[in-house]
């Protein structure tokens, strides 16, 4: 490496002599940073999504590489947000990849002080049994005057407002068919 190349490799020199006196562009670049490519360019795929936080409904572009979300950006096509995201929308990649994300079923036995592991299929089966039992325990056919009630007060549900319309639709349909009238949502809260 010649002296000249060596000196020119020095950011402060480039900053003082080049076209970037504030050192925020070319002057600050190293061979490594010059080669960096945005994650949006190197992604395997991109899905068009919507921010899950508030009800403004900002469009998002979700970039995936090697089976992981690598970047979430505001969708410039959206007439709502025109590519912008607020701190929450901009942090939503971390919502998906957070180290706190729990990806296994956890089970707490009555009177226990600890979580245990439980297989997903077993858990589904146990929950179905419990729904059937709770439903039967407080089933009401008719009221005191003999008017039909067709319902159970044995169990209830409370949903957040980040549920999809399709999810809410199936939940209400299933609860109604089971006679379970006690179903509520963040929408009342």
């Amino acid at each position: 490496m010649g002296v000249r190349t060596w000196i020119e490799g020095w950011p402060v020199y480039r900053q003082l002599t080049g076209t970037d006196p504030l050192g925020r562009g070319l002057a600050a670049m190293s061979p490594r940073s010059a080669e960096l490519r945005p994650r949006t360019e190197t992604a395997d795929s991109m899905a068009r999504s919507v921010c899950p936080y508030c009800a403004v409904g900002c469009g998002q572009r979700v970039y995936v590489k090697d089976g992981r979300v690598t970047q979430i950006e505001g969708d410039p096509d959206s007439p709502i947000n025109r590519g912008r995201l607020c701190p929450k929308g901009a942090a939503s990649k971390n919502l998906v990849t957070s180290k706190f994300r729990q990806t296994r079923v956890r089970y707490r036995r009555p009177y226990s002080t600890e979580w245990e592991d439980l297989d997903l299929d077993t858990a589904m089966d146990m929950i179905a049994d419990r729904v059937i039992a709770a439903r039967a325990a407080r089933w009401e056919d008719v009221d005191d005057s003999g008017r039909p009630l067709n319902r159970t007060l044995g169990f209830s549900g409370l949903g957040g407002a980040t549920l999809d319309n399709e999810e809410n639709y199936l939940i209400k349909k299933l609860f109604t068919a089971l006679g379970a009238i006690q179903i509520e949502n963040q929408a009342r809260i």
Binding site: P52, V96, P110
Partner: peptide, 25 residues
């Protein structure tokens, strides 16, 4: 805890990018 009868199932959920569907804003 030793007297609390509630049996708890924690069922991990898919995030907004791991499923498809509509939101109404």
């Amino acid at each position: 805890p030793e007297e609390c009868p509630t049996e708890v199932f924690f069922m991990p959920a898919a995030s907004h990018v791991e499923k498809e569907g509509t939101f109404t804003q």
